[in-house]
Amino acid sequence: MADDVTTDTHNQSDDLTHPLARKFLWLADEKVIQNFIWLPIIGLAVTIPLAFVYPFDEGHKAPWDFFASWAIIGFVAYSFVVLSAEPLFRLLSRKENYYGEEVEPEVIVAPKVEVHHHD
């Protein structure tokens, strides 16, 4: 199924990188990753005040609807889902061949490369 899988441990920006992707390699930059969190913060900083400009329709309004409620719902729901992953995983996970199915090999060809070690 897999064709042309090349595992490259040393050089991230050689010929094997797609030409279109070369200009976007900064996406993997450690600084960008560290500062990604500012994107949603700025987004929220803009949209929460905007909710005063565009208020809820008084005729059709859920009991919990106020200017920043959807942001709170989003944050809480998302965190709840992610945090529930660990206990659920402990409860529900089994070995991959639990049902006696064929499993693709466990070890990948080369050890994983942490991108931010590169610089």
Binding site: G43, L44, A71, G74, F75
Partner: peptide, 10 residues
Amino acid sequence: LQLLFAAMLA
């Protein structure tokens, strides 16, 4: 957008 940004923030 609030919902989605908040999720991304989380």
